[in-house]
Design a protein around this nucleic acid. Structure first.
Lengths: 205, 205
DNA sequence: CGCTGATTCGGATCAGCGATCCATATAACC
DNA sequence: GGTTATATGGATCGCTGATCCGAATCAGCG
């Protein structure tokens, strides 16, 4: 890559980071280009789609989140690690208003520039969830995809001005739904039951 | 209103209903006008905003849903009524792809044409929830606003192609989170406990 | 250093969006 | 049938992202 192109690319990323974190990911590409004193065509050549721009902008954040999952896995109780990681994921999305919709669209679209980052993130969460399930701390009838969906739902709610004030409570409600109380059902088999699967709660429908 | 105007208005509503249910609420206003063989300005005069068009199109559905809440309240167990009504709300939104975002924006925006419909719906849900809480069947630390948010989150997930396949399971997870097991904690006080409030689950945080 | 060829840039343009203007057409009333 | 208030829709505006292509810039070689 030519030196001036590299310079433009880096500059564009820096400016895009500023503009997007203050205006949200739906900001017009023209605005970003203007703020970077660059033609719209230049921005679009470096990053042909909004997803491509976000991927370049956020992929270190994505890596940090997946690394954080491994870190929590090593240092925390299974339940605490899962809850803490989900909380960090949700908190992270609030820095980039609107990114949730793009991620939800990218997770099943191999063409999207955000696809691999999203699937990696989902896998990291799936590992934390599986570990909690193995110890009977999380309900067994959900998987990493469901966890990703729950995170996306919380993140989306945090993006909606009318719903955001309740984000903490919604988080608590969903956490209660996913986690299995350690001392549930009195003390009967306080240790991990032989058959922790198919959580015997109300078998709704 | 002049007769030709009334005719155009009705025709526009009929066409908009078709187009929106097959293309989603984000369809271009021009497309709707074209399908109705009408100028764009005519459509926009009858319905100055997309919200206004949707309000006219959906307000009978809104009334049906609030009426349905009263109906279920009279005919069902508190818990079943709440769950059934939420399920109907979520199912209804799937008929109009994308309507959830507009509703989430309208619930706290008195200027929106959808505002009163949304708040009415929220109130209906709040009544069902309060009744379930009074009998100790739903957790006490949420209110109608939270319920509306949970419905919106489920509806939004149903709108996302990648998340929609898991909508049923997500619904079950959230239902478990909101409802209090009738026979929870073995048989200790199978009848409604004297103090059903502040669900004594893990006091997270 | 200066030339040449490949690369990059960005103004111009296009199709699409919702919003608005206003000359024209039409319904309703006398 | 004439008059007037109302409704219509083509034209236009500013905005969006996508694309084209002449001009500017860089890099490497003589």
């Amino acid at each position: 890559m030519r030196a001036d192109a590299r310079r433009n690319r880096d500059h564009l990323l820096a400016v895009a980071g500023d503009v997007i974190s203050e205006q949200g990911v739906d900001v017009s590409m023209r605005d970003i280009a203007r703020r970077a004193d660059v033609g719209l065509a230049t921005l679009l050549r470096h990053f042909p789609t909004r997803e491509a721009l976000l991927e370049a902008l956020l992929h270190t954040s994505f890596h940090e989140l997946t690394a954080r999952a491994a870190e929590l896995e090593a240092s925390q109780a299974v339940e605490g690690a899962l809850v803490a990681w989900v909380r960090e994921c949700v908190a992270w999305t609030t820095e980039y208003r609107g990114v949730t919709v793009l991620m939800a669209a990218a997770i099943e679209d191999p063409e999207s520039a955000l696809h691999v980052s999203c699937t990696t993130l989902r896998a990291a969460g799936g590992r934390l969830l599986a570990r909690a399930q193995a110890e009977g701390r999380a309900r067994d009838d959900i998987d990493g995809d469901d966890l990703f969906a729950l995170i996306a739902m919380l993140a989306w709610a945090g993006d909606q001005p009318a719903l955001a004030p309740r984000a903490d409570r919604l988080f608590a409600v969903l956490a209660d739904a996913v986690l299995v109380d350690a001392g549930d059902r009195g003390g009967r088999g306080a240790e991990k039951p032989a058959q922790p699967s198919t959580r015997p709660r109300k078998p709704r429908r």
